[in-house]
Amino acid sequence: MTENGAFENWMRTACDVVEEDIARKHERMKKSSFLFLRATFFRWAHLVKSRAPEILDLPSPLSVGDTHVENFGTWRDAEMRLVWGVNDHDDATLIPYASDLVRLTVSVRLAEFGLSNRDAAAAILEGYERGLQAAGPTLLDERERWLRDYVGVTDDERASFWEEIDGCPAAEPPVGAQSALLGGLPHDAKPERFAKRTKGGGSLGRPRFVLVASWRGGRIVREAKAVLTSGWDWANGRTNDANRLEEIVNASTRSPDPFLRVGHGFLVRRLSADTRKVERDADFDRKLDAKLLRAMGSEIGSIHAHSLELRNEIMADLDRRDAGWLHEMGNLLSESVEADFEEWKAFQS
């Protein structure tokens, strides 16, 4: 059995897998090594072990895991400030710190942006070190207003958001998902419809539902997505380990989304036009530059800095490293991912 097959069979024991979404994920994965990387974090864990085992002995903070250039977005915190940062923590767990950095670097290389691989790695590493030293959330209403140019929502995008929500087919979620969704609404909101939503890369195949409700003059949306053990823990034989999602989003260096919560085996979050993952399109590809990559690196550093003891250990390890280590490691694992992708794709034909 292939590694993908083993992982998907395990998923079937952990949640009610949406088989048509699994098929859709496979077709999507065939399109490029970048999309393959996005969809197979559990394979990355094995790749690190076989091709870069020296990473495994490094300090292991609570980490994102499935880090890549499309795993960043915006949300509103409890003070309604607009926050930018990592907004998908499905695979959060204790991981050697270099994995998040190298995986982000690899994703930039595989996505084939205009920036050179060496410059991209240098920008990510510079930002990471800054995030370790001055940890904190990226607030777009105050300190980092320049990021609005990258994540601003146009009127067309607002219209597209509601078109997508209205296009989600009606569904009857299981009782647990319904309870989780209803529990995420204001007490006087009036539920209008449950629907099935198809979204994501690595999470395709997990059940995902939305609830549209009316509240004080307009519509609001909540989404529920099944929560599983991190792909890193699965790859290391810890298939029953608890997901660390709530722990990482509420860490002391973050400014969390107050609507995000886990219950009944589902992650529930508020959806809106400006609470979203910033996905690749022509405009994003054109804008991605060293400044944005430094911000991404800084966000990862800030997440890893939650533990002061581990932060100091990471900084000491970085001081011992050659300046080009991230570029070299990125090259090594980029080639490994591309070879893994070609081997997997050949197996599908």
Rank of each mutant, 00 (worst) to 15 (best):
F7I: 08
A39Y: 02
D77N: 13
T138W: 00
A92E: 08
L260W: 10
F209I: 02
L318G: 02
V17E: 03
A170E: 14
N250W: 13
E247L: 15
A251E: 11
R311N: 10
D16L: 09
H264D: 04
L47N: 05
Y150G: 01
T2Y: 04
N243S: 15
S33L: 03
L245S: 08
L139E: 00
G265C: 07
A121T: 03
K225I: 06
R216D: 05
G183C: 04
R130C: 01
T198G: 05
L326R: 08
F7Q: 07
H89V: 15
R109G: 04
R208I: 00
D322G: 12
E3Q: 14
A235P: 01
L260I: 05
R24N: 09
G330F: 09
G201Q: 09
Y97L: 08
R193Q: 06
S298N: 05
E157Y: 01
A159H: 06
D88S: 08
D156C: 03
E343T: 14
G65K: 10
W325Y: 14
L260C: 12
G218F: 03
W162I: 08
M80R: 11
K196Y: 08
R219C: 02
H68N: 07
V106P: 02
V102K: 05
T138I: 12
L132I: 06
V102D: 00
G152D: 13
R254C: 10
R130L: 05
G184H: 03
E126Y: 03
F41L: 13
A23P: 00
G265N: 08
V17P: 00
F42W: 13
C168V: 05
L271C: 08
G324T: 15
A123N: 02
Y128T: 03
A180P: 00
S298T: 09
A282F: 09
L292N: 01
T13Y: 03
D233M: 04
D66S: 13
D340Y: 06
F34A: 11
E247G: 12
S230K: 01
A282D: 15
G218W: 03
D21A: 14
K225D: 00
K287W: 07
H264R: 11
N87K: 06
N236A: 10
H304N: 12
D88K: 10
L292R: 07
P173E: 07
L288W: 07
V106T: 12
L115Y: 01
A195W: 00
E163S: 14
L37C: 08
E192I: 15
K225E: 04
I300M: 11
W344G: 06
D317N: 14
F209G: 04
V64G: 07
V17K: 01
